[in-house]
């Protein structure tokens, strides 16, 4: 249960990262910071401004998307280089600056976001689970379904998929690539922010929370295959379950090692990832 709940939020994180990489060819080091931003916004609205918990999650997601869109519009779009390493370096710079801005504003002390759910765990036989976790799981699943509908059944989704396949052809066919990039980055950032806003109340909010999230997101994307959103969804669940069962049955010390061992194994056996067709290898 816990693994499934984590998996659903990992999937949101992974999709956001794989989307930005697949369509924009950007190794997005700020991804974890958008996760942290979502969590801090939820904290700001719920704990500091007294906004309703559910509204705060929506607001946090919206702010994540707006900041993401602004970042694309004011910085990424205006870059004179498309070199993948230079853009990555830029994202590293932004990551460092964003993380320390969070610390400057909210301090290094971890914050707890109060939730309106009952603290008493629900008990089903031997399993006990908090209502908050059930809420997070349900929301994350709804978002995952909504996202796949968006990609597969809307004009925006079609334009994104065609840009992913071939940017130049898509542009020739009348797709406004600039708009698609902005939408992609906003969507990717929004997904990270909503994951942060959902997990924030379960865990704690601290300036360095994004680092682990980035690491996990990268792992998920590799597991699923770069640029594959279906792969990232499944990759998220696989990673969470591997962590859960690996540490449950072998040793919790090596919990984080399992994910990496699985990745190394996947790369050796199937370098293009579990779910991506071979020609997508970047």
């Amino acid at each position: 249960m816990n693994g499934v709940m984590l998996g659903s939020t990992y999937a949101l994180l992974g999709i956001g990262l794989t989307l930005v990489f697949g369509i924009m060819r950007i190794v997005n080091f700020t991804h974890g910071e958008f996760y942290a931003l979502g969590a801090y916004m939820a904290y700001l609205f719920v704990a500091q401004l007294g906004v309703n918990f559910f509204a705060a999650i929506l607001l946090a997601t919206a702010i994540g998307m707006i900041v993401g869109a602004a970042l694309e519009f004011f910085i990424l779009r205006r870059l004179k280089t498309t070199d993948i390493d230079s853009v990555m370096l830029l994202m590293i710079g932004l990551w460092i600056a964003m993380q320390n801005t969070e610390q400057l504003i909210w301090g290094g002390v971890a914050k707890l976001i109060p939730s309106p759910f009952a603290q008493q765990p629900l008990v089903f036989g031997p399993v006990s689970v908090s209502p908050l976790k059930v809420f997070v799981l349900v929301t994350a699943i709804v978002l995952l379904i909504a996202f796949h509908l968006l990609i597969n059944h809307t004009r925006l989704g079609l334009a994104m998929r065609s840009t992913f396949q071939d940017r130049d052809v898509a542009s020739l066919m009348g797709v406004n690539v600039g708009t698609i990039y902005m939408a992609t980055f906003a969507l990717g950032s929004g997904l990270a922010a909503v994951a942060g806003a959902l997990l924030g109340p379960i865990f704690l909010v601290s300036p360095t929370m994004g680092d682990l999230a980035s690491l996990k997101a990268f792992a998920i994307v590799i597991l699923g295959g770069l640029g594959s959103t279906v792969g990232a969804t499944i990759g998220g669940f696989v990673l969470a379950l591997v962590e859960e069962f690996g540490s449950g049955y072998v040793s919790a010390d090596f919990r984080d090692a399992f994910s990496f061992l699985v990745i190394v194994a996947v790369l050796i056996l199937r370098p293009q990832g579990l779910f991506a067709p071979k020609e997508r290898v970047g």
């Binding site: 929370m209 962590e243 540490s247 449950g248 919790a252």
Partner: peptide, 17 residues
Amino acid sequence: VQFMTPDATDLSAQLTA
């Protein structure tokens, strides 16, 4: 006796043991 990495956030496996 259970250990956790300093940045681990989900401790359910250790606590279950």
